[in-house]
């Protein structure tokens, strides 16, 4: 099983959509999370994401990512909740630390928005081939190939670097660096020296990719170079209208 950002092959309804429609859908889902003030609506968007992942056949991946996001967001939630002092006190703790209703709601909305905005982008990337994404950005949106390629390459390299970092941590653990400690602060401190090998490996990989691209005539490519066409079908129009409606509903939802 690959990482959530790796392309997952499939022939589902979502896989078959035009890459532009997928980009638009994911952006509108993000927007709807930010324009709404309703935590219930944010929760519904998260559930919609999970349902879409199930349709695309990557529900286990989506749930794994959701678990990771929840862990990270729980940490953010705990930090944030103690910094907002406005509103009526819900919970009083020693050393003048207290939780207010406004603080609770703000922190809750913050983490729900974060989860709701991250999942659709990750979902879109895992059901869209990088080549299709790059071609549609150049061919349909008129973005210069250089920039479209940079964007897709940056995204493609995220799982590569994640695997590289895991390899580096493994190699350092094998030489006695205590990454297997239970102390999270000690672990964070131990990560910093690893930036050196990660940086060096990354620069080497990028340099290799750049040379390889140059050798294959990277600079000769024009807007017309792509041979694949990406027609915008009825399903794509329907999905785009649904996405737009969802974003509008986010702004006006009463609950």
């Amino acid at each position: 099983m690959g990482g959530f950002l790796d392309y997952s092959p499939g022939d589902s309804f979502l896989h078959r959509l035009n890459p532009l429609a997928k980009i638009f859908l994911s952006l509108m889902l993000c927007v709807s999370c930010f324009v709404t003030d309703s935590s219930v609506f944010c929760l519904m968007i998260i559930l919609l994401n999970i349902a879409m992942a199930a349709v695309a056949g990557i529900s286990s991946r989506a749930l794994a990512m959701l678990r990771t996001l929840i862990k990270f967001c729980a940490f953010l939630f705990l930090i944030q909740i103690f910094f907002i002092k406005e509103g009526s006190i819900l919970l009083s703790l020693p050393f003048n630390i207290y939780v207010t209703d406004k603080g609770f709601m703000f922190s809750l909305m913050m983490v729900l928005r974060l989860i709701g905005a991250t999942l659709p982008l990750a979902l879109m990337l895992s059901i869209t081939k990088m080549n299709d994404l790059s071609n549609v950005l150049v061919g349909r949106m008129g973005i210069p190939y250089k920039y479209a390629f940079s964007l897709t390459t940056a995204i493609r390299f995220i799982p590569v670097f994640t695997a590289e970092m895991a390899g580096i941590i493994e190699a350092q653990t094998a030489r006695g660096v205590a990454f297997d400690t239970k102390n999270i602060f000690k672990k964070i401190g131990l990560i910093f020296p690893l930036c050196v090998p990660l940086l060096i490996t990354s620069v080497r990989k990028i340099e290799g990719a750049a040379i390889s691209a140059e050798l294959r005539g990277f600079n000769c490519r024009k807007r017309e170079s792509g041979y694949k066409s990406y027609p915008f079908r009825t399903a794509d129009i329907g999905v785009s209208i649904f996405a737009l409606t969802l974003a509008a509903a986010g702004a006006f939802v009463p609950f």
């Binding site: 580096i168 190699a171 350092q172 653990t173 090998p197 060096i200 490996t201």
Partner: peptide, 19 residues
């Protein structure tokens, strides 16, 4: 990390070990 006190592991890619 405890086992590493008496074990050495040479990986295929030396760059992962150099820091």
């Amino acid at each position: 990390s405890r086992i590493a006190k008496f074990t050495g592991f040479l990986f295929q890619n030396p760059d992962r070990q150099i820091c």
